[in-house]
Design a protein around this nucleic acid. Sequence first.
DNA 1: CTGAAAGCGCTTACAG
DNA 2: CTGAAAGCGCTTACAG
Lengths: 350, 350
Amino acid sequence: MAATIKDVARMANLSIATVSKYINGGHVIDANRVAIEEAIRQLDYRVNTMARGLKTRRTKSIGVLIPSVRMIFCMDMISAIEDELSREDFSTLICDCQGRPEQEERKMAFLLEKQVDGVIMMPSSSSSVAARMALAAGIPLILVDRPLPDIAADSVLVDNMTLAKAATTELLRAGHQRIGVICGPEDIYTTKQRLSGYYEAYEADNTQVASDCISFSDYSLEGGYKSLEKLMSLTEPPTAVLATNYETTIGAIMAINRAGLRIPGDLSFVGFDGLDMSTLIKPELTMALQPVQQIGEQAAKLLLGRLTANNKSDSGKSSIYGSDADMIPKREIMLAGKLTQGSSIAKMKI
Amino acid sequence: MAATIKDVARMANLSIATVSKYINGGHVIDANRVAIEEAIRQLDYRVNTMARGLKTRRTKSIGVLIPSVRMIFCMDMISAIEDELSREDFSTLICDCQGRPEQEERKMAFLLEKQVDGVIMMPSSSSSVAARMALAAGIPLILVDRPLPDIAADSVLVDNMTLAKAATTELLRAGHQRIGVICGPEDIYTTKQRLSGYYEAYEADNTQVASDCISFSDYSLEGGYKSLEKLMSLTEPPTAVLATNYETTIGAIMAINRAGLRIPGDLSFVGFDGLDMSTLIKPELTMALQPVQQIGEQAAKLLLGRLTANNKSDSGKSSIYGSDADMIPKREIMLAGKLTQGSSIAKMKI
DNA sequence: CTGAAAGCGCTTACAG
DNA sequence: CTGAAAGCGCTTACAG
């Protein structure tokens, strides 16, 4: 049988109120502190999180809802979120939709059932039903990677447009005109943003976009492989290719190698999100990097901030407008990516 | 303010005991059932998991402790575990050691602090300290992928030896004598097992192992790439290569393509755990597949089984030998892998 | 089948 | 700084 605060109080010859105060960071006189600490040690006492939660109305757990666990981007982000949250003693419940967007509502329902204190969500589609569920439950919601129409929630996004534009511009400057781009699914936010960047670069350069060089994929390794093959089988293949996520970058490189093409001799190439590949691929790739770690960190911090705000408002008088937290304007954090300088881009003779 | 069981009882004109009984699957007369259901619907009532947990002494959450979130094997397994557990309304707390085995104890402490009902653990090293912590806390522990010395816990393992032996035998039968093998870290269980299988195949074939063809890696994409390069730069390179996990398989293929080698013309190849690559790589690879999904499923089921056993013993009289669950003999589930038939192995003329 | 009551292990005003 | 007491929202014998 695990020890309770009662046992500790008895052993320390104090009331449970005093022990509780100590546990929660309050001041007790030194002699008592020592006695409590000793009792806790001897009894191997741990706070019962459920009893505490019943009083505080907090589970100290947060839900993370993502499209799939099989995307490096998601996992790296989650790792950062978990790290940040566990520092504040929050646990992380991860739910993935296993690539099936229609699972999203079911998974959100599960998280709400589990009474998480907040949710960090990377939307699986443009449906905002799941997001609304969180909002209706009255808990803070943070959107990452993709915003949602009509959902007023804090969000952490990457400036994909500028990042893709920079990558494309780099290629255009080297004299490439037909630049293949391996995109994600056509209707997804990041795809649109990255493609916009691609277009903008062309426009700024006063060059005509070769629309047959735009290839959509499912953001998978396989998808990248196939897109690359398709691009290179055009009657007039591109002289450069830009992949737009980690998996398609790997897939494209596999296909490039497979086809016996050399980078940058036969084909210039810009990858995406594959920092760990830099030591591996020769020559070193020029790559567009998202600050994945930072995304997770910021999302966790935003959420923690909302929870603190909620706490404060609870102990104060409640406003007729809802909790104070609701009154903090929604924040949209837009993070900048960066382009590494590799040597995978060949200058074209014009 | 969320509705409580009291509100439901009031609205349904019943006692909370009756409502509680209904909620927990007990029988109530039809008219009352209808009234309760209606009240629950109208109030959007949800059971407060903490109040319930305080009584039942169960959090209905389980911890999963893995070495790193950046291994496809881990993620696929977790996805299966989560799926299985959520069916029984258990939530899954995932902790990864971020590749640093020394984090394992800290993460286990976190899970225990959160009072998970059980832990599924894939050991990060041969240290059994973390495992002992779970045992000391009196909760069921399931080991997956790797056993631990002196830890009597249920485990779910794959028969790696037989699987690697089958793969190597296939290569030997095709007439290959110098078979490169890309292993994981030298001191890890799966590495040892897979390497044993490799040796056994040679022994059964009465062939001398070419020990310079054995290359250890860190099981990463980069590691696979480098191992392949190293093997092919031997004065007498292998004529066939066997990779022993997903990441090294991808890395090796990248290096093979990069070197302009053809499979199986220039090099025969057997991959590991990359079912999703089969449609991608041409020719189709011969691959050694672990039943990843099944591993997760079995682990979850074993754990659920232990929890049920614990439940029963709690309501009965407790044995002087501890709970009944302790008396169920430890189970070791050994799953078989399988070898796919691809066309990535060339027959050697002898 | 139903209900009154105790109690799970905490936190939190409120006195002192 | 410390303690007595109420109460968070449930479940669970125990009567009826």
